[in-house]
Design a binder for these strands. Sequence first.
DNA 1: GTCTATAACCGGATAGAC
DNA 2: GTCTATCCGGTTATAGAC
Lengths: 236, 236
Amino acid sequence: MAATAAESALDVALGPPAKTPKGEQTRALILSTALELFRERGYEETTMRAIAQRAGVALGNAYYYFRSKEHLIQAFYARSHEEHLEAARPVLEREKDLKERLRDVVYAKIRTSEPYHRFSGILFKTAADPHSPLSPFSPESSPTRRESTALFAEVLFGSNTKVHPDLADELPNLLWLYQMGIILFWIHDDSPGRRRTYLLVEHTVDLVARTIGLASNPLLVPLRKRVLALLRDLKS
Amino acid sequence: MAATAAESALDVALGPPAKTPKGEQTRALILSTALELFRERGYEETTMRAIAQRAGVALGNAYYYFRSKEHLIQAFYARSHEEHLEAARPVLEREKDLKERLRDVVYAKIRTSEPYHRFSGILFKTAADPHSPLSPFSPESSPTRRESTALFAEVLFGSNTKVHPDLADELPNLLWLYQMGIILFWIHDDSPGRRRTYLLVEHTVDLVARTIGLASNPLLVPLRKRVLALLRDLKS
DNA sequence: GTCTATAACCGGATAGAC
DNA sequence: GTCTATCCGGTTATAGAC
């Protein structure tokens, strides 16, 4: 189920041309060559010509499969999410405590992204541009975003913390946003072993989990209502 | 005082060549022409050749004053901050309530940035890359950032809210970060009249101001200590 | 120190032949 | 699906004028 969903996201991310098995193979070759070079030299330093050459295809052929250099990033998103899913699955099956689940899922994201730390800076570059189809908020990214959000829904509803029904719709989105914030921090984090990022997660995850648990507390009803009203208004 | 500081930031942003009055004038001409074109057509669609042509200078001359197209953005930062300062000054003199001060200063930022809303997307693109000298977190940007932070220090300490001394060092930074978050939202906000952004500010500013006021409350000592410890650790 | 003119390089992107 | 040729614009280089 999760795997099927991930594949569909990949399709969207990778775009139309994927008819024949051979074509599929060529695209995969180009993509992995590209990521290889990105890891080795960084994004800016990797030219489309270099990618094509190492992959043993013509420049134009690379553009046949990927509309632009940036679209390689979109494909990377999708692949990265798949790896995240896989790394997160065991935790979700084993652990039932919300805080632990949340922490381990976020850790999984960071761990699986680590080989691309340098490259990810560029990734966020395109992410911040609202009109780019590569923005995580863009319609083009919505499949991957939806799946990523679904993962957080599972973090939430598979835990033994009672989630107040009012929050059920919005919380997964907010957790996804929380993870985006962590990643933004991680991108700027050059401490050894990404110490700072882990520190930040360790502390904030506790805060988040506690807040979710407390949200049912009668004392917090007005605050909860207010936050929910704001969220609703922001969408309209 | 504020003006002097702003000028020094401009100098850094604009770079070395600025000896003669004539040169100063030429640079200003190139910059305003560029911003004009950015506003009209957007960043990507504006070529350096077009900027040079409309400014009536040779292409090489544009590069004489601005190391790259992106460096025009750095200059834009500095200019934008100056306008923000100017727009914020009357508020800071008139109003003493923390919440009002904070809101109006953030509003001033949004209002003065409004003509560049489209362009600002690109701006954030480059901002998000941690290795770019244009990142607001980079050393190159630190003068403008420092001044921007100083503005929030004034918001804080010029108000009639008692700020707990433990927080004095960090709060201005956090408020600056808060404003960055608002701007990130604003960039993605295409609602008429930027309704959503104003809504978000309206609600969160209240939360922020309240939290600052409550931070002295004995009940919150443990939380305050914890947050401060985290912030300290994140820097080490 | 400022500025012009012009040519060239490089790499992302496109067109069109096969 | 794949290739070659070409365009376009950021950037650099040069050589020289005021």
